[in-house]
Nucleic acid binder design. Structure first.
Lengths: 245, 245
DNA sequence: TTACTTCGTGTCAAATATACACTTTGGTGC
DNA sequence: GCACCAAAGTGTATATTTGACACGAAGTAA
């Protein structure tokens, strides 16, 4: 569309096609073995849709009229996990006009939304949580909420595979600089657990001695007077992470 | 808002308050002395508003119903600058519910928009252009479009000062890793020009020899068989930048 | 020819990153 | 209590990168 100088006033945007805004959250957790992402399963029973149409998806929902984007992301996350106060980061906004228009998604949206045909632009957030601090609770339009290993994620609703992939990339590139890895671990952790986590996120092996050298010169990582228990080998020292002010 | 399992179906989003989506572009250019950002001045004459209410702003406008976000950013940029095919990067989405609600902005929006009171969420892009390749052309609702040195930017409309600041930070952090600096220079440039640019963007002095060492090991920077002319001192060698594939 | 201005260049020291292997510790089972 | 197991924990030598630093060369103008 190009507008000439003269026609401006009458060319004001008179479009009647509304655009909806949503937030989606890629919520990561770590169980000591794999990095997981929290997915919900669409509740087709509740919507009286055939079971086989149920798709898994990232937790997300429309932004409310007077809610900031961050507040919206926090709310969606809280609704699905009852967790508050966690690291939460906007990383990209996905706005392809066709992103919710596929028939597989339309069927679901027709049951859920007043305007299922509307284009939806979604602002994507990612966050990291300590998996041992809560168990996800399915709520609202989700039949189930469950942790899925990131390398076992199935085809998701909408463009959520693409969003998830982008979240993983963002997490990789911010892991080192922003020390976000600690958010995934339990309060007390061993350096081996931390290293395993880094290796999983970065998808490469790290040298044990060099890794420990690097970690130990971060003064946010504090050695505790405590050791791992219940392992059938030499127990490792436990550490905690302390965010500065 | 929390929803219980049972009330889901009747709690579908029935909000009548629509949210608009816009894109804003922070377009940077370099004139050899300072980094500039392209600002427009709102055309109050055309809107029959008092001249003194005119504000400067980043170029931006509502996203059209069937337009992707990138396409929208490209369109706005093209409308204002006639430039195409330039580096263009989404960096953040600003969505405070109050971001266009100030009275200074409402006056303008009442003239321009069908729904001036509506909340607007804006997806922000930044881009870099060679200043010598085009002169900005004011168009549409802009009375003027002009380059302003980034340290002389006045109070802008809406939350555009905040958006601009965020764009500068993004540019700083992506300068090194993504070689975006070259986009700001003319096709043929000297290493001193490049260094001046880096110093302006990063806002610190760099060591000449170390800087040149770093640049010269990038094989995208190609020395030309040409020298600077028209200077009253030893002319510098010219280089060009070649993006790989 | 001189004066002026920016160009263009190399080395050393310090800090950082990488590669690499063996002893220690606690638990388990006999 | 002894032997075995498994992972914990630790240091050094080398290569690479970073940062500090000063002066002769090239062209222009008077």
């Amino acid at each position: 569309m190009s507008r000439s100088r003269n026609s401006d006033k009458i060319m004001m945007n008179t479009a009647t096609a509304h655009i909806d805004i949503s937030v989606d959250c890629a919520l990561f957790g770590f169980d000591g073995e794999a990095v997981n992402v929290l997915l919900i399963e669409q509740d087709t029973d509740q919507m009286q849709l055939p079971k086989e149409t149920a798709q898994m998806a990232l937790p997300g929902d429309l932004v409310l009229p007077n809610e900031s984007l961050h507040a919206s992301a926090r709310r969606v996350l809280k609704e699905l996990t009852s967790l508050e106060g966690i690291y939460l980061k906007q990383f990209y906004t996905f706005g392809s006009p066709e992103r919710v228009a596929q028939e597989k998604d339309q069927e679901w949206l027709r049951s859920l939304r007043m305007h299922p045909e509307r284009r939806v632009i979604t602002v994507a957030y990612y966050s990291l949580v300590k998996m041992d601090e809560f168990a996800p609770q399915a709520n609202s339009f989700a039949a189930r909420a469950q942790w899925v290993k990131i390398d076992e994620v199935p085809d998701l609703a909408f463009d959520h595979n693409e969003i998830l992939e982008s979240a993983v990339e963002t997490m990789q590139s911010e892991l080192m600089t922003k020390h976000i890895g600690f958010e995934l671990l339990p309060e007390k952790f061993t350096l081996s657990q931390l290293q395993t986590l880094y290796e999983l996120i970065l998808d490469k092996k790290l040298d044990k001695r060099n890794f420990r050298k690097n970690i130990k010169r971060m003064d946010q990582v504090i050695p505790l007077d405590e050791k791992q228990t219940g392992v059938l080998h030499k127990p490792a020292q436990l550490f905690k992470f302390e965010r500065e002010e």
